[in-house]
Design a protein around this nucleic acid. Sequence first.
DNA 1: TCTTGTGAATAGATTCACAGCT
DNA 2: AGCTGTGAATCTATTCACAAGA
Lengths: 231, 231
Amino acid sequence: MSQARERGIPDATVARLPLYLRALNGLAERGTATVSSEDLAVAAGVNSAKLRKDLSHLGSYGTRGVGYDVQYLIYQISRELGLTQDWAVAIVGVGNLGRALANYGGFVSRGFRVAALFDADTAVVGERLVGMAVDHIDQLESVIDKRGVSIVVIATPAAAAQQVADRVIAAGVTSILNFAPAVLTVPGGVDVRKVDLSTELQILAFHEQRKADRETGSPMMAGDWAEAMDV
Amino acid sequence: MSQARERGIPDATVARLPLYLRALNGLAERGTATVSSEDLAVAAGVNSAKLRKDLSHLGSYGTRGVGYDVQYLIYQISRELGLTQDWAVAIVGVGNLGRALANYGGFVSRGFRVAALFDADTAVVGERLVGMAVDHIDQLESVIDKRGVSIVVIATPAAAAQQVADRVIAAGVTSILNFAPAVLTVPGGVDVRKVDLSTELQILAFHEQRKADRETGSPMMAGDWAEAMDV
DNA sequence: TCTTGTGAATAGATTCACAGCT
DNA sequence: AGCTGTGAATCTATTCACAAGA
C-alpha cells in the first residue's frame, strides 16, 4: 500500500464501482472465489489496466500472482460506496415512472429502502405500493424528517421538479436523483444526478446518423434551415 | 470559422448538446430571440467557456458582441444530433418500466417515434399503448425490419437483456438503450447506452457518505468484513 | 463596448509497460 | 510463472484569458 485512501477517489472511478460490484455479484452467484483483473474487466466490459487502477484507489486488496478474492472485494467496494448502511429513499411523483421505479426489482439492491412515496394527486394518495402508503406532497417535509430520508428521487413532471427540489433541500436532503427532464438549480453541497431518456436517445441518434453518413458518404448539406423549421 | 466540422465532435460535447437544446427550447418558449453564451450557460448549468467551445465544434454560429440566435442554434444542434429526421424506436419489455417509457411525455420529443412494442407475456400482447399494439417477442425481427426500427430500448428483466440484444443486433439494429441492470456484450459498431437506477443511487450514496464522514470527522474503520458479511 | 471563438495552460482520465510480490 | 500495483506517457476535457469581430 502507499498513496491509497488518503483523500478523494476520482469521479470516473466512483462511477464505475457499481459496475464492478454488479460483475462481482454475478461471479459470486456462480460460486467463483477468486478473479483476476483481466477476467473481472471482461465481465464488467472495461480495460483491465483501468480496472486495476480504479481498485488501487480503494486500497491494495488483490494478491499478486493470484487475483482478487471475490467476497472480500464485494465487501470493500460496498463499504466504499456506503452500501453497508441503509439509505432511506423517497420517491416523489407516483405516475407511471414513479410506480416503475418503486417496483423496480434492482431498486432495493442491498443498501436502499423505499421509505416514502409522495404525490400531489389526491386520487393517488393513500394507495399502497411496495408496502408503502402514498403520502400527499403537503407532508413532504414532515415525512422526510420523521423517516430519516436522505436520498430523494424526483419522478414528477418537469414543471414541478424545481419546486420539489427546493422543498426537499430546505428539509435537509442533499442527494437528489432527477428523472424529470428539467435542469435543477441547487445550492453548493447538494448532489444531483440526472437520468434522462431523451438525452440518451439524442446521443444514440447522433451516432446512428454518423454511421448512416459514413455508409452513404453524404455528409449532409446545411440546407435551408428557415424552411426546415417553419420559422 | 476554421477547424470546425472537419471530423469528430468530442464525446463530452455530444453528451451536452441535448442539454443545450433543452435550455434553448425553454428560452424559445419564453420568446427569447437571442442569447449570450453566459446566459445560455447559466440556463444549462455549465460554464460559459465550455459552452462556447462546445458550440465552436459545430461551426461558427454566433455573432460577436451579440450572442446566438435562439432559433438558428436550435436548428443547428438538432441537425447535428440527427433530430431533423424521424427515428423509429422499439421498446422491448412492456412491464412497469416499459409502460412508463412509452407514456413518457418527453419521450417523443421531436425526432423520435414509438414504432413497436414487444413483450414475451401473451397476456400483454395485443394490448394497446400510445396507439400501438404490443407484439409478441417472436415477431421481433420481422417487425423491426418492416417498421424500419433503428433504435431499440431494452426494458426487460436483466436475465433477458443479452438475448434481446443479440436478436436485435442480428436484425440489423446498431443503437441500443439498455434499462436492464445487466452488462451487454455487443460487437463493434453497435452503440449501447445504459441507464441504471441502482448505479445512480450508489453514486449518490458514496457522496452522501462522504458528506456524513466529513461532518462527524470519523473516517470509518475497516472493521471486520467477515462478520459484516456473514461469510 | 460587448461577446464570440480559440490558442495556451491546466487538470483529469486512460493506457502502456514493467518492477515487485506471491 | 503469473498477476497486481503503479510510475510514466498519452490522450481527452476543462478552464483561462484575450485577440478579433460586430
